[in-house]
Each structure stands twice: as structure tokens, then as C-alpha cells.
């Protein structure tokens, strides 16, 4: 394993700046978050931070708002991901054809993916407005009463999920579509030569080969949905009555509206743990050489 000194030097020059930056802004903050969470640390009180032991964590277990935010987050993630996955999967198959014009339509449908989430929240907030929102106009077209989309607790949750579904379904479609396209034609030909019917080919070949892509997109979407905050900020501010108070929103308001940094820190640590567990699965999926390709 000999490598010349020049090569070692070059490697160091190439690698160290990025790693240092990540150490400073990623690794250190995690440790710092733990440090903060073990302290009473408020910006609204003049007192200097002091050691609190596990106090903040104990409080978390008793905090109804925190428990509520966990369940709200879970609900949101479940609704959004499920809808995105089902829709995205079906749409990927719709687009998987060489029909004229379909490719252009597919590309156009991608536009929401990269739109500024804050503006997405803004426009859906506007469209869902009870008084003049265009969605309610559609609702009245069907002869129904206008709906209080953002002020009813059930509807508010669905509204936020709807905005998220609008933004991310095209992404799920794209991933599964790309996976579908990258499946080598020869496995299908082999299937036909082996005497499988088209239906058997779908169940025995296509679906198993798509599985890794489905898992990957599922985890990515789940992790991103867990940290969603922009839509809530624009559309509901966690209301009505905490119905849309997802964990990130509660954390944010605790830290930067109540300025209770110690308590927010303990939530941050909990959140990092949750996300790390999810990411583990993802990394294993990516690192797995047997991705079926």
C-alpha cells in the first residue's frame, strides 16, 4: 500500500477543506446541540446558561405539545408519502411509453419539484382561502358549500399534505420512471423467451427489479417530510389549535419565538436521532451492492 509522498500531499489538499467545513458545521453542532440540551439556556432571560442535567428531556416526556407534534408529524408523513408513492408509481407507468408528446408532458409535470417551498405554501394558502380561493370556487361548482380548508383541524392537515403531494409526486414519478427506463430490455426478452406472460413478467421481473428504487425514494421522501417546515410557516403556523404543529415547527417556535434554546436543543437531539435511524436504512440501501442491477 505504498503511495508516494506527493500523492499523499495531493490527497490531503483535495480532501481536507471540505471535511473541515463539514466537521465545523455538521459534526460539531451535533455535539453542541447535546451540550445545549443539557442546560437551561434561554435568550429571553438575562441569567447565564446553567447546567440542567436531563431536565429538558424529562420535560419533553411530559409535554403534551411535544407528544402532539410527534403524532402530527407522523400523520403528515404517512398521508403525504403514501399518496405520493401510490400516485407516483402509477404515473411512472403511464409515462413509460414512447407515445408522441408524452415525454414533453412528463417534463412539464416536473416543474413543482424545484419550486421554492415558501412560494408553494404561499400559493396554496391563497388558493385554499375560504373566501376567495379558487379551490373553493371549484368546490362550489360541484354544488357544495365552501370549505374552511385552513381553519378546520382535519382539513388543515390535509391541505398541507396536498401542497406537499403537489410538490413531490412528480419527483417520485421521475425516480420510478427512471428506474423503469434503466431496467435492461434483455431481462424482459429473456422472460419472453422463457415463456412468461406479460402479467408474470410484471410480477416476477419488473416489480422486484424496481424494489430498490421504491425503497430509496420512500426513505428520501420520509426524511424530507419529517423536516418539512416551510409549508406550515406559510399556510397554518401550526394551527388551528396545534392541528398542524409538526415537530420542526414546535422546535422552531420554542427556539426562536420563546427563545428557550435549551429545550429546543433537546428536541433537536431527538429529531437528529430519528432522522439518523432513517438515514441508516438509506445508506445501507445505497451501499448494498446487490441493488438488483
Amino acid at each position: 500500500m505504498s503511495q508516494s509522498r506527493a500523492a499523499r500531499r495531493a490527497a490531503f489538499i483535495l480532501i481536507s477543506p471540505a471535511v473541515l467545513l463539514l466537521l465545523a458545521l455538521n459534526v460539531f453542532p451535533i455535539g453542541f446541540a447535546v451540550f445545549i440540551s443539557l442546560r437551561h439556556w434561554s435568550l429571553s432571560i438575562v441569567n447565564p446558561p446553567r447546567f440542567a442535567g436531563l431536565f429538558n428531556y424529562q420535560e419533553l416526556t411530559l409535554d403534551d405539545r411535544f407528544i402532539n407534534s410527534l403524532s402530527v408529524s407522523a400523520t403528515f408523513v404517512l398521508i403525504a408519502i403514501l399518496a405520493e408513492l401510490v400516485l407516483g408509481f402509477a404515473l411512472a407507468f403511464v409515462f413509460n411509453s414512447k407515445l408522441k408528446g408524452l415525454d414533453t408532458l412528463r417534463k412539464l409535470s416536473l416543474l413543482p419539484v424545484m419550486a421554492m417551498p415558501l412560494v408553494v405554501g404561499l400559493v396554496w394558502f391563497y388558493m385554499l382561502n375560504e373566501n376567495f380561493g379558487v379551490i373553493n370556487w371549484f368546490v362550489t361548482l360541484f354544488g357544495a358549500e365552501r370549505l374552511p380548508f385552513l381553519t378546520d383541524s382535519t382539513l388543515a392537515m390535509l391541505s398541507i399534505a396536498l401542497a406537499d403531494i403537489w410538490q413531490w409526486t412528480p419527483f417520485v414519478t421521475l425516480v420510478i420512471f427512471a428506474a423503469l427506463q434503466s431496467l435492461p430490455e434483455y431481462v424482459f426478452e429473456a422472460g419472453r423467451m422463457d415463456g412468461l406472460t406479460e402479467r408474470e413478467i410484471f410480477w416476477r421481473i419488473t416489480l422486484p427489479l424496481l424494489r430498490p428504487a421504491i425503497v430509496v425514494v420512500l426513505i428520501i421522501r420520509a426524511i424530507d417530510a419529517v423536516r418539512m417546515i416551510d409549508l406550515v410557516f406559510m399556510m397554518t403556523k401550526g394551527g388551528p389549535g396545534g392541528a398542524t404543529e409538526v415537530l420542526p415547527w414546535y422546535l422552531y417556535t420554542t427556539g426562536f419565538q420563546s427563545f428557550d434554546l435549551g429545550y429546543a436543543g433537546s428536541m433537536a437531539v431527538v429529531m437528529i436521532i430519528i432522522v439518523t435511524l432513517g438515514a441508516q436504512v438509506f445508506v445501507r440501501q445505497i451501499a448494498n451492492p446487490e441493488k438488483g442491477r
Partner: peptide, 26 residues
């Protein structure tokens, strides 16, 4: 008719046994 492909065209998600068995399964 049976075919042998240049790039083998094996099913990547199945083990050797299942690959060979596929024509019989069908």
C-alpha cells in the same frame, strides 16, 4: 425456442437456481 444472449441476460434479482428454473416455472 430457447435463446442464449451475448450479455447472458440473467435475472439479476434471482439466484442461479431460480434463473435456470424460470422456463419451467413459466
Amino acid at each position: 425456442i430457447a435463446m442464449v444472449f451475448e450479455n447472458y441476460a440473467l435475472y439479476p434479482h434471482l439466484n442461479v437456481f431460480d434463473n435456470i428454473a424460470m422456463p419451467l416455472v413459466a
